[in-house]
Design a protein around this nucleic acid. Structure first.
Length: 582
RNA sequence: CGGGAUGUAGCUCAGCUUGGUAGAGCGCUGCGUUCGGGACGCAGAGGUCGCAGGUUCAAAUCCUGUCAUCCCGACCA
């Protein structure tokens, strides 16, 4: 492609409404242009990069045995009503009514396709002989994000690869899951991304039923807990701590249990300020409704409760904070004054709670708190659990290391769904004995735009983008320094023709511009290899080659220009391929 | 949905406090000189100052409303 024939509107200055690196660079390098919050046009360079990522995703899906299909983005709303996800999605689901003759049709723009594909399967699969298989598609998804942000990192319309596996047994599901997991590792490695598979909250199936693939990045919206010493990594929701159950005994010396007045003071911060104590001296008492049974959950004041852990510790299927009426009936006080002393329901506590000597808790009476609360004397515990979010400094659950928290961008997610959708949408098969079973499903998503955005967010320097060869919009940039010089243009055109014919993605900067101008743009758009053809070099019979991040240019005789480029590109391709796991 | 900020030329911004002919740099067009890391000169084009009301003889500037964008938080199958 000749620069003069395409559209690459580079910007010298940083647009004022871009804050994170990927947003700034994608705008400056002319990859994208905003239409509205959360919706961007992809310009030629951006779209080429996106399509290269898409091609890699497609290749690896097929290599893993998945088969491509294409489903409608328009979906009837009743599918979401049948799975209960119309309410679950809430405002995120873009849905509307359209008129057709004298009736109205209520439809949604697909935020994902579990419903549609399960409905499809329910209509075409009848017997175990058809299973297992995995289908995938690469398609635009729509989600009404409450707050789109960070340029292309979080948008209301985005390109997603979504795959779904259909199995008759857990073993088949595991096989499909492992194949997708391996394919994801290859995809992100081929895309030149740093990635980290982390354990994720897996819902009712439990076990290692869900992994998120994260790209570590300071501006990532997700928090990852990981151990620098071993390979343990999990998202904040899911991360275990290496703490064991506490020994539960009344402290040897402790103060008296005292009830104090704390009018209208309900939060940890307010109480600690009024009573002059630290939050870690306090016990947060949260009243949860666990499958319709109220339970008091004790967490140290400075910690955050983790509902997934609470649910697992209680063996409950559903856990949510209790309403005010329940709180009143259990504690005898309005919300904000709950405490373990004399409470009228079961109590479970986090490990750290049992260690607190002379704790401050709610008084189970309006406008009252207790001080000097001690386990064994003022309330009883039989054991303790891990009920809170892990934090930086906690012990690793897998080794003797110390956990740290890093931010990341979620670029992929693999998930063992089980029969949630097949049951609600009647996707069944019959086994050898003609017995009917719901199909066992898995789902596997990749945000294709996020591959590009994550690269832009993590691979750049002061001068601009630094693409890996595999995703770069063009592999080679030919820069004739003076387009008025016939000899220069002759060589440039010849290289362009021959390299294009050899299958190289070539961009030639044929603009009438001064060399410095072209070099700046070349760095900004970050094409990996640069071939500079100038009058000075040609006099000596040379052209120049330079990698985007390499040291100064390398002189190569004109006659070796084409073969030199091909050699270098092949070497780089091989080097990039070498980092891809089997 | 709560909190904060910003809307003036394609981009970055000044002008607003104290109302009185709409500005700069970059970019763009033409001509000329240049030509190895965002050149220079000359001549130009380009803006209903986000939008709508109001106050005023007069509003980019003051007031009210509204819309949009960005940031923080809540939310995120």
């Amino acid at each position: 492609m000749r620069w003069s024939k395409t559209l690459i509107p580079t910007l010298k200055e940083i647009p004022s409404d871009a804050e994170v690196p990927s947003h700034q660079l994608m705008l400056r390098a002319g990859l994208i242009k905003q239409l509205m919050a959360g919706a961007y046009s992809y310009l030629p360079l951006g779209y080429r990069a996106l399509r290269k990522a898409e091609a890699i995703v497609r290749e690896e899906m097929e290599r893993a045995g998945a088969v491509e299909i294409h489903m409608p983005a328009l979906q009837p709303i009743d599918l979401f009503e049948r799975t209960g996800r119309k309410d679950a999605f809430g405002n995120v689901l873009i849905n509307f009514e359209v008129k057709r003759g004298d009736r109205k049709v209520h439809m949604a723009l697909g935020p994902t396709h579990e419903e549609v594909i399960t409905d499809l399967i329910s209509k075409v699969v009848t017997t175990y002989k058809q299973l297992p298989f995995t289908l995938f598609q690469i398609q635009t998804k729509f989600r009404n994000e409450e707050r789109p942000r960070f340029g292309v990192l979080r948008t209301s319309e985005f390109l997603m690869k979504d795959a779904y596996s259909f199995s008759t047994s857990v073993e088949q599901l595991d096989e499909a899951y492992d194949a997708m997991y391996a394919a994801y590792c290859r995809i992100f490695a081929r895309c030149g991304l740093e990635y980290l598979p982390v354990e994720a909250e897996s819902g009712p199936i439990g076990g290692d039923a869900s992994h998120e693939f994260m790209c570590p990045a300071g501006n990532g919206e997700d928090e990852i807990v990981r151990c620098p010493k071993c390979s343990y990594a999990a998202n904040l929701e899911r991360a275990d701590t290496g703490r064991g159950a506490a020994t539960i005994a009344q402290p040897e010396s402790c103060g008296d249990l005292t009830k104090v007045d704390t009018p209208d003071v309900t939060t940890i911060d307010q109480v600690s300020e009024m009573l002059g104590c630290e939050p870690q001296q306090m016990i947060k008492t949260l009243i949860y409704q666990a499958d319709d049974k109220p339970v008091a959950v004790l967490i140290r004041g400075d910690h955050e409760a983790n509902e997934g852990k609470i649910r697992r510790a209680l063996g409950a299927t559903n856990v949510e904070l209790a309403d005010d009426a329940t709180v009143l009936s259990v504690t005898g006080a309005p919300t904000g004054f709950a405490g373990p002393v004399g409470i009228k329901c079961d109590i479970i506590a986090d490990h750290d709670v049992a260690q607190i000597v002379d704790a401050v808790t709610g008084g189970n009476e309006g406008d009252k708190h207790y001080t000097g609360v001690n386990v064994g004397r003022d309330y009883e515990l039989s054991t303790t659990h891990d009920l809170r979010n892990a934090g930086s400094g906690d012990a690793c659950p897998k080794c003797d290391g110390t956990l740290e928290i890093v931010n990341g961008i979620e670029i992929g997610h693999v998930f063992k769904l089980g029969t949630k959708y097949s049951e609600s949408l009647d996707a069944n098969y019959i086994d050898e004995k003609e017995k009917k079973h719901p199909v066992i499903m898995g789902c596997y998503g990749i945000g294709v735009n996020r591959i590009i955005a994550s690269l832009c967010e993590t691979k750049f320097d002061d001068n601009g983008l630094v693409w890996p060869l595999s995703i770069a919009p063009y592999e080679l940039l030919i820069v004739p320094l003076n387009i008025a010089d016939e000899e220069v243009m002759k060589v440039a055109n010849q290289c362009y023709d021959e390299l294009s014919a050899a299958g190289v993605d070539v961009l030639m900067d044929d603009r009438k511009a001064r060399p410095g101008f072209k070099f700046k743009d070349a760095d900004l758009i970050g094409i990996p290899l640069r071939l500079v053809i100038g009058g000075k070099g040609l006099k000596e019979g040379n052209v120049e080659m330079k990698w985007r991040t390499g040291d100064g240019p390398e002189l190569v005789p004109v006659e070796n220009a084409v073969s030199g480029v091909l050699e270098r590109l092949n070497e780089r391709r091989a080097a990039e391929a070498a980092s891809v796991p089997e």
